[in-house]
Amino acid sequence: MFEARITQGSVLKKLVEALKELVTEGNFDVSNTGLSLQAMDSSHVCLVSLTLREDGFDHFRCDRNMAMGIHFGNLSKILKCAGNEDTITLKAEDNADQLTLMFEAPSQDRISDFDLKLMSIESEHLGIPDQDYSAEVKLPSSEYQRIVRDLTSIGDTVLISATKEGIKFSTSGDVGTANITLRHNTTPEKPEEQTFIDLKEPVALTFALRYLNNFSKATPLAPQVKLSLTKDLPIVVEYQVGELGSVRFYLAPKIDD
C-alpha cells in the first residue's frame, strides 16, 4: 500500500508541468523514505532527478518499494482537474496497475478521484556522484528564466563562464551577439532576490539553450535556482521545492567535434 497526501496540491501540478515536455514517461520510485524519479529526455543528453522526502508530505505511507510507470502527459491531464487550493492524495495498492489521485477542495464540499493507468517502463538509473563543483551560483529563478529566454531569441547555444568578476552568459546568432553578466550581489534585503557566486576555480562551458530554457518551466516551484558547473561535466540546475525536496536538471555540455 502506498499513500501520500499533500495539502499544497499545487506543488504537484507545478512539478509535472516542469517535467512533462522534457520527459514523456518515467518511474515514480516510492519507498519509506519518499518518492523519487530519474528520467532522461529522448536524446539522453538531459536528465531530470526529482526527490520528494517522506517527511515533506502531510501523510506518507509506503509498505513496500514500488516503481510506478507514469506517462507525464496523462498525469498532467489529470492534475489539471485539481484546483490550485486542493489537497491531493496519491494512492496505490501493492503491484497495482493504476495510481489513484484524490482531490479535496479546502471547503471539503468537493471531492474527486481519478485513476491513472500505470505503465511498465524499463528505465536506466544513473549513479550521480556527490561532488564539489568549480562554481555554484544561486540566483533568483525569475532572473534565470529571463536570461535563458532572452538569449534563446538570439542564439542556439550559450557559453556560461564563471570568474571572479561574476557569471557571464554569452550567445551569438544571425542577429548578432549577446552577453549578460551577473555579479555576486547580497544587497537586496530579501534573500530570494540575492545572487551568490561561490567560485573555487574559473570555469567556462557551452550548453544548448533549448534545454536551459525548458528547465525554467520549474520557476514557479522556487524563488531561487542553483547552477553548478565543473569543467567537462554536465551542468546541474536545481530548484528546492520548499521542505518537500528538490528537482534537479542535468545537461551535458556541448563539446567541440
Binding site: M40, S43, H44, V45, C46, L47, E124, H125, L126, G127, I128, P129, T157, T206, A208, L233, P234, Y250, A252, P253, K254, I255, D256, D257
Partner: peptide
Amino acid sequence: MHQEPLTAYFPSA
C-alpha cells in the same frame, strides 16, 4: 559541436 549522452559522464547505477 556535439553533446555526449549523460551515460558518458555518469555510470549506470
